[in-house]
């Protein structure tokens, strides 16, 4: 089974976000970068599927800056076979541009499965996976929390509001992975050493200047990146259960939410 996993280098979820001097970017000084947490589940799933099939290849593909090589090495240390870095200094804000670059790389790869994390925890775009599927004309299931594959078809479960959808699909397919599908392994020392010798192709790419499609073309442009509005100073109502009646009064009369 040949599986591609599209991964992303993102700022750690513990990061205190500071805005860059241009007012549009993230100030990267002192920021730790990690493999997008949802992508860890996708990598793990690829490894387990390949191990189960007893043969095949797990390829990790990232669009990102030169430093994303480290992110790819993390996935290789987990056990992926080889990596491809589609190198660009700037990952586009426009998800469709990212999808186009990835789709061009994936197109003739002969993959049975193309996996993504359900979203990246930095830009929250939540769109690249299904867009790639659309561009490649492949079936797609998003936010997969349970997965069974038998032969050339699969059954996935995805959470919806107030329930779970059980979805059937044929292979090859694009899936985006929800947290909890599996338990991602930690790279062992042996894996980390081996990862250094695994092939990693670096291919410079230039994401297009806009989607260019639709009747009027289309693009996403970052106008500004701002901190969220500060919440006004709150107060401690009191201590222990005795403070509950006062809390109720405030919620009713001041906040007016009860």
């Amino acid at each position: 089974m040949k599986i591609a996993v599209c991964i992303k280098r993102v700022a750690d979820s513990e990061t205190r976000v500071k805005i860059g001097a241009d007012g549009k970017s993230l100030d990267e000084a002192g920021v730790k970068f990690i493999l997008n947490p949802y992508d860890e589940f996708a990598v793990e799933e690829a490894l387990q599927r390949k191990e189960k099939a007893g043969a095949g290849e797990a390829v990790v593909i990232a669009l990102g800056p030169p430093q994303a090589q480290e992110t790819i090495r993390t996935a290789l240390a987990m056990g992926a076979d080889r990596g491809v870095l589609l190198q660009t200094d700037e990952v586009p804000a426009d998800g469709l541009e990212t999808a186009k670059v990835l789709a061009a790389e994936l197109k003739d790869g002969g993959y049975d499965l193309i996996l993504f994390g359900k979203m990246a925890i930095d830009d929250y775009n939540h769109q690249v996976g299904p867009m790639v599927a659309e561009l490649l004309g492949l079936p797609c299931v998003t936010t997969v929390a349970h997965l069974e594959i038998a032969g050339d078809s699969g059954t996935a479960e995805r959470e919806i509001e107030g329930g779970v959808e059980v979805v059937e699909f044929p292979l090859p397919a694009v899936l985006t992975i929800e947290k909890g599908l599996n338990e991602p392994r930690y790279p062992a020392l042996k894996g980390i050493m081996a990862a250094k010798k695994k092939p990693l192709d670096v291919k410079p790419v230039t994401p297009g200047g806009g989607c260019g499609g639709g009747r009027g073309g289309g693009r996403v442009e970052v106008v500004a990146r701002v901190p969220p509005p500060e919440r006004k100073e709150g107060r401690i109502v009191g201590e222990g259960a005795a403070a509950v009646p006062e809390l109720i009064r405030l919620l009713r009369e001041e906040a007016k939410v009860l």
Partner: peptide, 23 residues
């Protein structure tokens, strides 16, 4: 069309300008 899109789970807000037909 100008939209506000929270990123990093709302630790920052992106103001995005969308052009295209349709948006």
């Amino acid at each position: 069309v100008i939209v506000v899109h929270p990123v990093y789970a709302g630790k920052a807000l992106l103001k995005l300008k969308l052009t295209g037909t349709p948006v």
